[in-house]
Design a protein around this nucleic acid. Structure first.
Lengths: 159, 159
DNA sequence: ATGTATGCAAACCATTTGCAATGAC
DNA sequence: GTCATTGCAAATGGTTTGCATACAT
């Protein structure tokens, strides 16, 4: 029933319309960057995106990547995540809407889970003087790897 | 029924115990920084905290503030928020647990709301190989001020 | 033809790091 | 007395900015 969250044609069309509406130009860079974002099925950061583009022999400056991501966020097509310090990651909004993020506070690993009950409830939260666009739910805790490592560290200490 | 989320004595005790447990030292700086954090009823950032301390004639280097906040996060007493770019804010975990964040994507204004139904549901989400510590829910959209401003801008254009 | 968008390099600024001096234990 | 912690200043690195050139309209 759900439509593909990575549908390039659909997403590119929305971006084109947004740019025209705002009187901004539809450049090769902007189009190509968005196309590559749609190919990443998951999170991405500026460097990763740049490498992908470079591998495709498409050279863009970092400044243009930042510029384009900014526009995509304004167009509500991309959302920003900052799970830990120093690492800013982005994600297509259409993809982000389908899951929540489970983050290990110790190693920083990020996992995605679905929970439609939570999703439904959050969308129905009534907020006065505010028009809802989207939400991010980050659940923090300790992953099994870190728990295991911690247990072993304690054992070693007691020896 | 709820206990005061800003209870200095209780929070300081937990921090002291954490430090001893980890073989770390209980310094005047660490104690004083935490005491000031408990006085902020809301979010704070490193500079704000430093100003507060300075006003109290307590001089600490930024490095020590960063160091102490790091420890407080490891002790699960403080959580980090990054609502928009460039501004990292922190909050006492005991305070953060009582509310969700409503953020305007346009002006960056942050509001807090309570919704116990969501809180209960999220805490009960079953996650395999993971021990839950806390969660953050960020709801993004447009606040009434920005909506109003946008409407006026459009009117002006059409003139 | 006009003026926005790009690329590049320099600037910025929050955070981190290195090291000598201090102070907790 | 020992060694972790602090303060200071320098280093780091992601993001932003300024400006000449390229190109969308």
């Amino acid at each position: 029933m759900n439509t593909n969250p990575y549908d390039v044609d659909k997403i590119s069309k929305i971006f084109r319309e947004y740019l025209m509406e705002q009187g901004l130009r539809i450049t090769t860079e902007r189009k190509t960057i968005l196309e590559h974002i749609c190919r990443v099925h998951g999170h991405f950061d500026v460097d990763m995106l740049r490498e992908m583009l470079e591998e495709d022999n498409f050279h863009v400056s970092k400044a243009s990547i930042y510029n384009t991501i900014e526009l995509l966020m304004n167009a509500c097509l991309v959302v920003r995540h900052q799970f830990s310090t120093q690492v800013v990651q982005y994600e297509l909004k259409s993809a982000a809407m389908g899951h929540h993020h489970v983050i290990c506070s110790y190693c920083g690993a990020v996992r995605e889970i679905r929970c439609d009950a939570v999703a439904r409830l959050v969308k129905d939260v009534k907020i006065t003087r505010f028009s809802y666009e989207y939400y991010s739910l980050y659940i923090y805790g300790m992953c099994s790897k870190c728990r295991f490592r911690l247990m072993n560290d304690k054992k070693d200490k007691n020896k």
